[in-house]
């Protein structure tokens, strides 16, 4: 297998890296939408992320990545009578690519033609949704994804279960994944329903700093000359991130959320007219994840303020005649909320 460009060797783009790590830490945050210029390392980051993630435990030969520690999680394949369950083995966290040209069959699974033809059995061939369970599902150019695939994605991303009712098959299996999409907004808009499925949205642009650009070239060159050696050189940093993720995940479990943080989340969402509870919940989860990633056991208002743009910018109602970008609107609201007395101008 070819070496993927290491996540830690990506120059700059801190927002994107933070967002990806936050969702890796807490899947409930619900995925990242990366919008921005072409060729800025969006795909590279996602493909490199796979190497940083801790392995998941699965039963050997399980095609549905079921969690052996959650016996309630049942796949469509009933274990054969008398057969003992497979050994529990570690497996790299799946990062599954959903290509734009995927067929519905490939995505949600379909009748296994091979087995049907050769053995006359009606068997289910799992699709990408099964492979992505407990991992990441990555869609490059998500804004160009065809509507019939978006429909499938919407259902599964919301329910965490893939239900297949076709070709005489009636199958359901769990499919919970972190949805990561990237694209260039100038080439098409995302359906609002799909937009809503992403927990975080980051805008990235190419660095205009000459020194950073130089570094991009240098690292790319070094990688091309000796991919193996290059990856090895960044392994130390990768290990540091792995340790950070591990530590953060234990911290997250015991983390308490103080009232002033919850209040700030609520005030911000109200101020920006964000519908529903999802914005607030995600804002809270993202703030906690950020604090945990920084090795702190307490989440503060500063965390909320830091993550608010990426949590809220894609949830604002769009006014086509308003030229102001959504990021600016979030930032303005932040200033308002943190400086008015009812927002407890405080530790921020």
């Amino acid at each position: 297998m070819a070496f993927a460009f290491p996540f830690t060797a990506i120059v700059g783009q801190d927002d994107m890296k933070l967002a990806l790590l936050m969702t890796a830490l807490d899947q409930k945050i619900g995925g990242v939408l990366i919008f921005g210029d072409r060729g800025t390392g969006k795909s590279t980051a996602v493909r490199g992320l796979a190497a940083l993630l801790p392995p998941i435990r699965v039963r050997e030969g399980d095609r549905f990545n079921l969690d052996p520690d959650r016996p309630g999680e049942a796949g469509p394949e009933a274990p054969r009578k008398g057969a003992r369950p497979g050994r529990i083995v570690p497996m790299p966290t799946p990062v599954v690519d959903l290509p734009l040209n995927a067929s519905e069959d490939r995505v949600c699974g379909a009748l296994d033609i091979e087995r049907a033809l050769t053995k006359g059995e009606k068997a289910f061939e799992p699709g990408l949704f099964a492979r992505a369970h407990r991992g990441f599902l990555y869609i490059d150019e998500v804004n160009l994804l065809e509507d019939h695939l978006v429909d499938l994605l919407l259902d599964v991303a919301a329910s965490g279960t893939n239900v297949v009712e076709r070709e005489g098959l009636s199958v359901r299996h769990p499919s919970r994944f972190v949805l990561v999409g990237s694209g260039n907004p100038e080439e098409g808009e995302l359906r609002p329903q799909l937009l809503d499925r992403f927990g975080l949205a980051v805008d990235i642009s190419a660095s205009r700093n000459i020194k950073e650009r130089m570094e991009v070239v240098r690292r790319r060159e070094a990688f091309e000359r000796d991919p193996q050696g290059f990856c090895a050189a960044y392994e130390k940093e990768a290990n540091a991130i792995r340790r950070r993720l591990k530590k953060a995940s234990t911290m997250l479990d015991g983390m308490e959320t103080p009232d002033d943080v919850l209040e700030l989340c609520a005030v911000l969402c109200m101020r920006l007219g964000v519908d529903g509870m999802r914005g607030e919940l995600t804002l809270m989860r993202a703030s906690r994840a950020k604090a945990a990633l920084e090795g702190r056991a307490h989440v503060t208002r500063a965390d909320v303020i830091a993550v608010a743009p990426m949590v809220l910018r894609h949830r604002l109602r769009r006014d086509p005649l308003d030229e102001t970008g959504s990021t600016t609107r979030v930032e303005r609201a932040l200033v308002d909320v943190t400086s008015t007395p009812d927002g407890h101008a405080g530790r921020a």
Binding site: G39, V217, R220, E221
Partner: peptide, 11 residues
């Protein structure tokens, strides 16, 4: 201002 990809390709 072109993308970093354009830059690395040209290198």
């Amino acid at each position: 201002e072109e993308s970093p990809r354009r830059l690395t390709l040209t290198v």
